[in-house]
Amino acid sequence: SIEEEIKKAEEAKEKGKTFIHGDFVATTEELLDELLKRLRKKL
């Protein structure tokens, strides 16, 4: 679910890890923020 993806992305951000969502690879905090923004729009 979208909620689960958001939670996983937030955890990755806290730990400074890379998060992959489909073909979107978030390797930096900026990219994770962008991904979180996109996911929240889908809610």
Rank of each mutant, 00 (worst) to 15 (best):
S1Y: 12
S1W: 15
S1L: 10
S1A: 10
S1H: 09
S1V: 09
S1K: 08
S1Q: 09
S1I: 09
S1M: 09
I2V: 08
I2M: 07
I2P: 03
I2G: 05
I2D: 03
I2E: 01
E3I: 12
E3C: 15
E3W: 14
E3K: 10
E3M: 13
E3F: 10
E3P: 06
E3Y: 11
E4G: 06
E4R: 08
E4D: 11
E4I: 08
E4M: 10
E4V: 07
E4C: 13
E4K: 07
E4A: 12
E4P: 03
E4S: 09
E5R: 09
E5T: 15
E5D: 10
E5Y: 12
E5P: 03
I6F: 02
I6R: 04
I6N: 01
I6L: 09
I6Y: 03
I6H: 03
K7L: 10
K7W: 05
K7G: 05
K7E: 07
K7T: 08
K7D: 02
K7Y: 04
K8I: 05
K8N: 08
K8P: 01
K8T: 04
K8A: 11
A9K: 04
A9Q: 02
A9H: 02
E10D: 03
E10G: 03
E10R: 07
E10V: 10
E10W: 04
E10A: 05
E10I: 10
E10C: 10
E11L: 07
E11V: 06
E11Q: 08
E11W: 04
E11A: 10
E11T: 07
A12D: 04
A12T: 02
A12H: 04
A12F: 02
A12M: 04
A12Y: 03
A12L: 02
K13H: 04
K13V: 04
K13Q: 05
K13A: 05
K13D: 04
K13Y: 07
K13L: 09
K13N: 02
K13F: 07
E14Q: 13
E14K: 14
E14S: 12
E14V: 10
K15C: 15
K15R: 10
K15S: 11
K15F: 09
K15D: 08
K15V: 04
G16T: 03
G16Y: 06
G16H: 11
G16S: 05
G16L: 10
G16R: 03
K17A: 08
K17I: 13
K17R: 06
T18P: 13
T18L: 08
T18G: 14
T18Q: 14
T18S: 13
F19W: 04
F19P: 14
F19C: 15
F19I: 15
F19R: 14
F19S: 13
F19K: 14
I20M: 07
I20H: 09
I20N: 05
I20T: 10
I20R: 00
I20L: 07
H21W: 14
H21M: 05
H21P: 12
G22W: 11
G22I: 12
G22H: 06
G22C: 15
D23W: 11
D23E: 09
D23Y: 06
D23H: 02
F24Y: 09
F24N: 02
F24R: 00
F24P: 01
F24M: 06
F24S: 02
F24T: 05
V25N: 07
V25Q: 07
V25D: 05
V25A: 08
V25G: 02
V25F: 11
A26V: 07
A26S: 06
A26Q: 03
A26I: 12
A26M: 04
A26F: 10
T27H: 12
T27S: 14
T27D: 15
T27P: 02
T28F: 11
T28M: 12
T28I: 12
T28S: 09
T28N: 10
E29A: 14
E29K: 13
E29W: 12
E29R: 13
E29N: 10
E29P: 15
E29L: 12
E29H: 09
E30R: 08
E30Q: 10
E30G: 07
E30N: 05
E30S: 08
E30V: 07
L31D: 14
L31E: 15
L31Y: 04
L31W: 07
L31F: 06
L31K: 04
L31I: 06
L31H: 10
L32P: 00
L32K: 00
L32N: 00
L32A: 00
L32Y: 12
L32C: 01
L32S: 00
L32W: 07
D33N: 09
D33F: 04
D33V: 04
D33C: 15
D33G: 00
D33W: 05
D33S: 02
D33L: 06
D33Q: 02
E34N: 03
E34H: 02
E34G: 01
E34A: 03
E34S: 00
E34C: 03
E34F: 04
L35G: 00
L35K: 00
L35T: 01
L35D: 03
L36Y: 00
L36G: 01
L36V: 07
L36S: 01
L36P: 00
K37A: 14
K37Q: 13
K37N: 12
K37R: 12
K37E: 15
K37H: 09
K37W: 00
R38M: 14
R38P: 00
R38I: 15
R38S: 09
R38Y: 14
R38D: 12
R38E: 13
R38C: 15
L39G: 01
L39F: 01
L39T: 00
L39V: 01
L39D: 00
L39R: 00
R40T: 08
R40K: 09
R40N: 07
R40M: 07
R40L: 10
R40H: 11
R40W: 05
R40F: 06
R40G: 05
K41T: 11
K41V: 11
K41W: 00
K41M: 09
K41L: 09
K41S: 11
K41F: 00
K41Y: 00
K42I: 15
K42H: 11
K42Q: 14
K42T: 11
K42V: 12
K42N: 08
K42R: 11
L43Q: 07
L43D: 02
